[in-house]
């Protein structure tokens, strides 16, 4: 077992990031899609704490177990995710893996077809917010299992 990492998180940072998540979720106006996006980003970023938390929230919101189980393979599970959700998930993946290079035009344009400018700006905000939580939790190796909806 490796040495423990800091669990410190500046209150101002936590409050600002909570405000970011809340504003983005509100502007997107689709709580179920928001959870799918946050779970998918957390899968890609390997954030155990975030997966534990958002799977619990999704289940609490009544997201079907089948959708949660197959989310990591959404491209192959065409019947479970509609076009709007697929566009949001593709954008989530592109924005999460920036190190491999940019957000492709095709991915951005597909998202812009399904989301209006304001919705899209908030979706981008939400994907950024969960990526931020992922970094704070993985960086400090915050243990999963402590979250109660």
């Amino acid at each position: 077992m490796s040495a423990a990492r800091t669990q410190l998180l500046d209150r101002g940072v936590a409050q600002a990031l909570s405000a970011l998540s809340a504003a983005a979720k509100k502007g997107l106006g689709d709580p179920e899609l928001a959870e799918l996006v946050m779970i998918r980003a957390s899968q890609l970023n390997h954030c155990a704490f975030c997966l534990d938390m958002h799977l619990a929230l999704a289940r609490g919101n009544g997201v079907a177990e089948e959708r949660l189980g197959l989310l990591a393979a959404w491209e192959e599970a065409e019947d479970l995710f509609d076009g709007r959700e697929r566009a949001a998930l593709a954008l989530t993946e592109a924005m999460t893996v920036l190190t491999e290079g940019f957000v492709p035009d095709a991915v951005y344009e597909e998202a812009a077809l399904h989301f209006g400018d304001a919705e899209l700006a908030h979706l981008i905000g939400l994907i950024t917010a969960i990526n931020s939580w992922n970094r704070l939790m993985v960086g400090r190796r915050v243990a999963p299992g402590g979250y109660t909806p």
């Binding site: 600002a16 405000a19 970011l20 700006a121 908030h122 981008i124």
Partner: peptide, 19 residues
């Protein structure tokens, strides 16, 4: 994006200041 999501932008500025 900052015009279409002004609250998101404000939260980002707060985050930057705090971090």
């Amino acid at each position: 994006w900052s015009q279409h999501a002004p609250e998101v932008y404000k939260a980002m500025i707060r985050l930057e200041t705090a971090a």
